[in-house]
Every structure is written in C-alpha cells, then in structure tokens.
Design a protein around this nucleic acid. Structure first.
Lengths: 336, 336
DNA sequence: TTGTATGCGTTATCAC
DNA sequence: GTGATAACGCATACAA
C-alpha cells in the first residue's frame, strides 16, 4: 500500500496526501480528516526508501563502533547507548558499523552509499584514516575523541590529560611519591590512541610539578590482564603506592590482585583514574575517580551532528569536558 | 554523481552500467573495463535508497534491543555484537532500535517504514506485544528467546530450564540440601520474561527430583542489588549452602557479599548458574556455570533470518541450545 | 551484446 | 485549496 492508494480512497491527489502528512502546505480540515481516516484505517506509513530518494536525506545516522569481536568497555557502551537514545529522541534511526581500518566494507557502505545523513565516529586514533575518509567524502560527522588538530573538526571529548593530572596531584597531596599509570593496551598505544597519549602526558606533567616518580605500563582491556599487570607492578616497581588508570576493563583484575597481595585499599594502596561512572561505584571500595559522562558525551555528539547536518557550512564546534574527580574511598594517605 | 553520469562518461546506456555492476547479464569485457575504470576513477557507489526502492529490499536488518538507559548485560552485549558481526559478514547493515513496549516510535518505524528486510528481536517476553506486531506486519523476524508456542515461530534460545536443572543436580551431587535461585528483577519476572520463568521451573523440577529445598529470590540487574540480595539470603535463608543464578549483572555484588560474609568459595559456599562465557572466567574463583554462547546464538539467529527472508514461505525453524555446564572452581562439596 | 522504456513511492514545483 | 507531473537514482522487462 502506498500514498497513491491512500489518495485514491480519500478521493484526492497524491500530493494532497503528502502535504496532509507533512503539513508543508495547508489542507482543508475536511480533506485532512478524510485522509487521516483512511491512513489510520489502513495503517499506512510512507516508504522510507522512496522518501529518502525524493527528499535527499535518510533520517538515519551512522554510528561507527570498534570492530565486533572486541568487547566494548563500559565507556564505549555508554557512547553507543547515548547515541542511540539521543537519536531516538530526534526520531532518527541509527545504523551501526563495526569498523576498524579504512577499507572496511561496512564503513565504506556507510560513507559512500548515501544511506545516512551523518556519522558519529568513536574510539578514533590521533591520526585516523576513517576521519580522513569522511572528510574527503563530505558527509557530516562528529567524533567522540579528537584528532591532533582540535580546531578543524567537530568533536566531543574528555580532557584526559587534565583528569590524569588531577588524579596524580590528588595522590601527591596524600603523600604518595611513586605512582604508576595503567594505560590501555600496547597495541592501542602504538597505533596512536589519543586518550592513551594524553593520559601519559598528564601523568608526566603532574609528576614533574610535584616531584613524584611516575611509571607507565600498558595493559590489555581485560580483567585477567589487569591481574597480571598488577602482579608485575608489585615485583618490578615495589615502591609504587598509588595507581591511576584509564583502563576500566582491567579494574576487576586489579582489584583481585590487590586483594591477593593482601593490600587493603586505601590503607596500603591508593587507586584512582578515569572510568565510566557506574564502574566507579561498583568498585570495592568505591573508586575515587573522574567519572566519564559517556551517555552525556554521546548526547552532545549527537546534538553537534544534528546541527552540522542542518547547516553544513557552520563553523566547527567541539566540547572538551573536564568532569570533577569524585572523592570516594579508594585513595588515602600514604602509609609510611 | 549517479549511474547516468557513469554511463555518459563510459559511453554506454545506464542499464549497461547497472548490469556491469550486478553481473545479472553478460557485458563485453571491453565495455566492462571502460565502465569499471570510470567507476573507480569517480569513486561511484550506487545510491542505497534508490536501489532499495527499485529492488524492493534494503539490504538492512533491524535489531531491537532493550530500551536505552537499561545497561546491557554481558549476554545481551554478546547478542548485539554477534548480530552486527554476522550481518557484516553477509554485507548487510544493521539498524538498531531501543524499544520496550509496543507503541515505540523507533520500533514502529522499523516495522512499518519498510526500511529493513527483517528483524532480530531480543529479550522478549513470553507474551510479547512486539512479536504480535511483527507477525501482523508480515515482516520476517527471528527472536532470541522464545514465546509460549515454540513451534509457530523462528527463534534461537538456550534451554534455561534444563541448564538450571543441571546446576541444581550438580549441587545436589555435592551434598547441598538447600539452594537458592537468584533470578532477574521482580519487574522482569512479573512481566513474563521467559528465562526467569523457565529457570524457576528447572529449579523446582530438579529440587523435586533430588529432595532439595529450593528458594527463589528476584534481584535487579546490578552489582549493588546482588550484594543486598545475598545479605538478605544469609539472614532469611541461613540453611542455604548453594546458589544458582541467571543474573550475571548481580555477580560482582554476590561475590563481594560472599567475601564480606567471610565465606570462602567453594569451601563454605557454592555458586553456579547460567552466564556469559567470559564472565564465568572472570569470576573469582572461576565460575562453574553453563556458558551462554551469546555471539554464537546471534549468529544462528541471523542465519535463520537470512533464510527466512530468502524464502518467506519456509517452515518455521528454531534452535534450542543446551551448552554444557563447565566445571570450574566455584562449586564444592557441602561442608558439614 | 547493448539500448530503451517503465516502474519503484515519495516530495515538490507548477498550474489551476 | 487542490490536482497534475516532473524529478530522485536505480533495476529490469522488453527490444534490437
């Protein structure tokens, strides 16, 4: 059933039905009622493809997520949930594409098939081929996370450098003199993942400011790796009394290793970092941390994208969030 | 740029380009080369909406997930990842819709906007209005989980009753005489969530067979709730020495409560259940459990859907998986 | 082997 | 206020 059928039954022209539906031109009350009656009787809804073809827009957004197979972290999950939710609020649909590199078929379909009006790209690298691809395609897009040149594009991010710096200052205030940053995986660091680099920078900056000895270790995004990582820290860096991390997936493992080592938090050891809000609450003891407002970030990204789609000539905008470090119970004075 | 432009530059008719692209009719080698050269030079890709309109199919699948806001469990996350991954392998795109009840706009768009060729529905209720809606719409769909009448529809599920039954038998074998099932939330149970009902049935059946005292408690899908739930069990049901659960989200809380109560697993208390595979490994100690092969289930669901789309008249098919209970370290002989 | 013509279901521009 | 009708970009039946 199509718009012509509705028009026929209502005894009007197709265009009149279209206008009754869109409201883009006045329709006599009586006609409108007749049309609406037929529509609701038959349960008619316009064909999305036809509408997209005629209108030149799909009312659909693309969301590029890390390749399937990789388990999403809490923050990443928040991004996805936030984008989907915010899009639904705008009556927009979301097409998800699990894409790693540049020559991904799914990603390429999204970019070049004109099936979306815009794209949200998450977990980008400092120099990301997908960003370049989107730029040359002319498709409006917003990234969660930002590339090297912050002024030239649309993005939302959390200021990892500032947050880690604050965490280290906090530890220094508590008397800790040697700390370690548990970063994301070595592969991610090597491929130029922004948060990894910026966290390290923040750590070193704060360490310099406070005369704290600082170390960085990489750790895959898994509980088991967190466990192994901490055991390694204990043997290789025995002087460390404070840990700061952006690797939330490793947290359960770190927790278990702490316990295994009979270290009581925060009495014997302090731990803090940048993690998804709910994870901080679930840690035991509750984690003093900068809570990444993932859902909120996704919402902002979506608002920016909608804005950019509406005005393709608009100047790039971005948002750099600096959520507070929330004091909970995982950090304490260094025990001498 | 469109197919006409390619045709013009290659000096052929539009249909020839179309056929060269689809291969549905032979094209002379030389013409094909000329066309392909132009296509790759201009980076042409057919417009998805136009193609969908002409072809009558969208090469897109719908995936209905629990409402945004609800944090996805490990198993649910596996479903999403599995569907997206399997769809990508078929060169199909996935449109996600976060939908709870029947009158959801996003869900309604999917069902009635002809923007997808089929739908995967997850986390369904025993009597789910969305299933009814999809049935009356005529859109091919497959559910992960199954409704009351198992023969009439396409689905894939895990046999919760059998698995919980096995878990209870296992506990009985170890000498446990009083066990508790930690179910999903009371709301979910009340709304008629299949796994919740079937788990209870399996528990009671096994308890009857083995003369074990059995209890059921509901618990929201959160670590904190798991903690509270276990505290409650200890006070209200002090004789319980074994716990079986399908609530993986509560697991970290249960674990913490166990520890808080100074109960060593499995020496003092046994715990088992049905959970996502990776969670079982991450539990401490590793959880003896039936591992839900979520990604695999999603893959099967997608294969079924592809099959159903290809042949709308095909007889309903389904798959009821009974993964083994993997022995790890969280269950042991009852201590007298 | 290739070209022509029509239809897919809308929206939007004319004309009345 | 409303009705024709031309796009939108592609696939395909029909001709040649």
């Amino acid at each position: 059933m199509n718009i012509g059928e509705i028009a026929r039954r209502a005894g009007v022209a197709r265009s009149t039905v279209s206008y009754a539906l869109s409201g883009k031109r006045p329709v006599a009350e009586a006609t409108a009622k007749r049309i609406n009656d037929v529509i609701s009787e038959l349960g008619y809804r316009p064909n999305a493809s036809a509408r997209a073809l005629a209108e030149g827009r799909t009312r659909t957004l693309g969301l590029v997520i890390p390749p399937a197979g990789a388990r999403l972290t809490g923050v990443q999950l928040g991004f996805v949930a936030g984008v989907v939710e915010a899009a639904a609020a705008h009556d927009l649909d979301v097409l998800v594409s699990p894409s790693g590199g540049r020559h991904d078929r799914s990603f390429e379909r999204i970019v070049t098939g004109r099936r979306v009006d815009g794209v949200v790209l998450m977990e980008i690298l400092l120099d990301d081929p997908r960003v370049a691809r989107l730029e040359e395609s002319g498709l409006p897009f917003v990234t969660i996370g930002h590339v090297q040149d912050p002024g030239a594009s649309w993005w939302v991010d959390v200021d990892y450098a500032a947050l880690i710096r604050r965490c280290v200052h906090h530890l220094a205030d508590l008397g800790h003199e040697e700390v370690v940053l548990v970063n994301r995986s070595a592969e991610l660091v090597a491929s130029g993942y922004g948060p990894a680099a910026r966290s390290t920078a923040g750590l070193l900056e704060a360490a310099g400011e406070r005369g704290v000895r600082a170390h960085v270790v990489t750790c895959p995004d898994e509980p088991g790796a967190g466990f192994a990582c901490f055991e390694d820290i204990r043997t290789r860096l025995p002087g460390v009394t404070g840990l700061v991390t952006i690797n939330e997936a490793a947290l359960p493992g770190l927790q278990r290793a702490l316990q295994r080592a009979s270290l009581e938090v925060p009495r014997d050891f302090s731990i803090t970092g940048v993690v998804a809000d709910h994870l901080a609450e679930d840690f035991h003891p509750p984690l003093t941390a900068a809570d990444v407002p993932a859902v909120e970030m996704a919402r902002i990204a979506l608002e920016l994208l909608v804005e950019r789609i509406a005005d393709p000539a608009a100047q790039p905008r971005h948002a750099l969030l600096v959520p507070p470090v929330t004091l909970r119970s995982s950090t304490g004075a260094r025990r001498r």
